[in-house]
Nucleic acid binder design. Structure first.
Lengths: 97, 97
DNA sequence: GTACTAAGAGAATCTTAGCCA
DNA sequence: TGGCTAAGATTCTCTTAGTAC
């Protein structure tokens, strides 16, 4: 049987977070600072696990989605939840920089 | 004044974790499955922030260092500590897969 | 409008072969 | 021995131009 290439964690978390926000792939890319003409294509590649974005871009996507970068690399769902909780607690303590 | 290129989070965390383990750059690379002839050069590039490793490699480095991948992307030190605590708790609950 | 893809252009990393403390 | 680097070889991503629903 043929091995199906595994979707990376960050791809899965990216799509989940985007859909939770009700954004299209194009609009998420634009909010992260990508050119409107390439946004859809690029975000699609990342969510499908075809291409790997630069960390700098992941950081911008994380900011656009209101999540810490570490969230996108949490394999464990419980750890992911913990990271979100931590960032929300931080938001109250020290507002937006 | 010239802007100093910022060292990425994962670079900083990688070096810290490696030194805590008392490993050389070469030995860490080898433990992560890199060829002995390229290990030193490549790990050095990652720790200096010159090159970005593939996520697949970060996952192997994380395993070699006994840390979750998310740890290497935690900007906040307190969050990093939280992630380590979580992984240690998990080790007791469900041993090595 | 949204999700998605092929393929050449462009930009990155990887390997080799070293240097310095 | 350990940390580090230049540069060509290699391999990746990015942009463009599309398709299908």
């Amino acid at each position: 049987m043929a091995e199906q290439a595994q979707i990376p964690v960050y791809s899965r978390r990216l799509r989940e977070a985007r859909e939770r926000r009700g954004l299209s792939q194009r609009d998420l890319g634009i909010e992260a600072g990508l050119d409107a003409f390439v946004a859809s294509s690029r975000i699609n590649r990342y969510e499908r696990g075809v291409h790997q974005p630069k960390f700098e871009l992941i950081a911008r996507l994380a900011r656009a989605l209101g999540l810490p970068v570490a969230y996108f690399f949490a394999e464990d769902d419980e750890l992911a939840r913990l990271i979100v909780e931590f960032s929300r607690a931080g938001d109250r303590a020290r507002p937006a920089p």
